[in-house]
Amino acid sequence: HHHHHGSGALAALHAEGPLAGLPVTRSDARVLIFNEWEERKKSDPWLRLDMSDKAIFRRYPHLR
């Protein structure tokens, strides 16, 4: 159930192989992290948004 927010940013994801479903670039990863943060913020208003490279690598090590 993907609803768009204002920016309408869509992340490019790997379609197949071992990385299927994972973001292709760091900016794609940022979109995913932001979208998930927006969702989680509803139940956790104090949740901090962390889109640093460090956060991205921790989450998606293949982007190193």
Rank of each mutant, 00 (worst) to 15 (best):
R59D: 03
H1L: 14
I33T: 02
R64C: 08
H62Q: 01
H4C: 13
L63M: 02
K41W: 07
L32T: 04
A15K: 15
K54D: 15
R48N: 07
N35S: 11
G21T: 03
I33L: 12
P45A: 07
L19P: 02
H14G: 02
V31C: 09
A11T: 05
A12C: 13
R58V: 11
A15M: 14
K41A: 10
D50G: 02
K54A: 13
L19F: 14
A9F: 14
H2Y: 14
W37R: 01
G6V: 15
R48K: 14
D44W: 09
L49A: 03
H2Q: 10
K42H: 08
K41G: 05
Y60G: 00
A20P: 02
G8T: 12
E16G: 09
L19H: 08
G21R: 04
D28K: 01
S52Q: 02
A15F: 08
D44A: 06
A20L: 11
G8M: 10
L49S: 01
R26Y: 11
E38P: 02
A20I: 10
V31M: 14
V24I: 12
H5N: 12
S52I: 01
D50I: 04
V24P: 02
E39K: 09
S7P: 13
R26W: 11
H4Q: 09
G6Q: 12
E39F: 10
D50A: 04
D28N: 02
L13H: 03
S52K: 06
G6A: 13
H2P: 10
K54F: 09
S7G: 13
P23N: 00
L13A: 04
I56A: 01
L49T: 03
D28T: 02
R30S: 04
L10E: 14
M51S: 05
G6R: 14
I33P: 00
L13N: 03
W37D: 00
R64H: 07
H1F: 09
S43A: 12
D28A: 05
S7M: 14
L19R: 03
R64Y: 12
H5K: 12
R26I: 15
I56T: 02
A11E: 06
P23K: 00
D28S: 05
A29M: 00
E36W: 06
L63F: 03
H1D: 11
I56Y: 01
L13F: 06
E16H: 10
R59P: 00
L47E: 07
